[in-house]
Design a protein around this nucleic acid. Sequence first.
DNA 1: ACCTGAACACCGTTCAAGT
DNA 2: ACCTGAACACCGTTCAAGT
Lengths: 234, 234
Amino acid sequence: MVTKTKSQPKREPLSRERVLAAAIEVADEGGIEALTMRGLAEHLGVEAMSLYYHVANKEAIFDGVVDAIVAEIGEEIGGFEVPEKVDDWQAEIRRRILGARAVIMRHKWAPEVIESRTIIAPTVMFYMHGLLGVMIEGGFDYDLGHHAMHALGSRALGFSQELFEPEPGQEQEVEQDLEELIEHLPYIVGMMEVIQHDDPEDTVGWCDDETEFRFALDIILDGLEARRQALPTT
Amino acid sequence: MVTKTKSQPKREPLSRERVLAAAIEVADEGGIEALTMRGLAEHLGVEAMSLYYHVANKEAIFDGVVDAIVAEIGEEIGGFEVPEKVDDWQAEIRRRILGARAVIMRHKWAPEVIESRTIIAPTVMFYMHGLLGVMIEGGFDYDLGHHAMHALGSRALGFSQELFEPEPGQEQEVEQDLEELIEHLPYIVGMMEVIQHDDPEDTVGWCDDETEFRFALDIILDGLEARRQALPTT
DNA sequence: ACCTGAACACCGTTCAAGT
DNA sequence: ACCTGAACACCGTTCAAGT
């Protein structure tokens, strides 16, 4: 073994992979707004300008991060390959989407980054292609498959926009002027009472995200199945 | 009439309302990234710092803009009042949501701003309250109503995240390396061929957003109706 | 080949000062 | 009461220069 040991190398050189991995670390720790070129460089023990040798710009970092997240989804669900025979398309689609969701839950900032891409990432395309393939082999025609992709939307990747949900870390402050709201929002108040009654533990974060996600997902999958069964058999 | 006409006033004074109206104008014209404090001030013929006399900061502008958009939705659908008797909850919900969508279509940057709010705007709360009220009066119990609000998510306000859709102005460039994609993405390619066959006019923007939005909305409404009918009658 | 210092053009925002 | 100039702390990025 010929190794040059002349003075221990202080750090291994940068690379696109290390930059992207660090970017995910920084976002995991401090959220997406913590991911700045200068902050990322500091996290790597390097100057901000050094990053530009390995990535074109910040957008390229976002692109690479999305690729990495989708790759993690691929590991989670065992690849995007479409099986030759699909007996239960609903089960297979649900398995993939809930797997994607598990990954997204580890990187809660990811939806915002994914949505911010103007051109669809090739890896995302491969993921969606897998979903579409499962549906086609499961009895969809292409037209219904197309509708299905749109109906799922971002839910295909395991997330959905919740208008009632605050950002992680910033809990909703419902208490504040609840007094005056009660008379103007009787239905909301009534709903909250029922929900809190069902689950008295939950005080502030009064919704079970996982349950709600599955509820909506099942509605969509059921609706698609009904329309699949209505297809003319050729 | 005693009016002081000593030298024509060059411009009417600023106000919170004028700032917010101008903010919407700027975003309508140049997108949300064009909405900067300096740019907004220039649009108003004023210095950037003057804005801070009327709004606390940029976040407050975003908050106000969301309020204004929801107010516009209110005008579009004739208010958020819940009728005492709801015969066809699906029709009423669909009417409100498609009205909201019409407004969002005029302000395509609005979804991003709405999603960026960490605390739910009071006006948004009123809008959602109206939807919930229609459902309750239409035969939902509070638990199903709660599920429904989550299942609709941002679709309640007339938009949904389309992973395949590029930002307005930046068309998807599918042509680029389509050659190599064909062999890896047979299902996507097959789907595109069928879709283009159905609608040969559409070359690049190959999806009818309105149709897809209604398709997904109907699936959700149908699913909710099925679950409503399954409720125990009390 | 890989990293850096200095500089640029842009942000949002504060604060004391103008009228 | 309403607006402004100067300044600050932060961005992403370019470019010539270092090793």
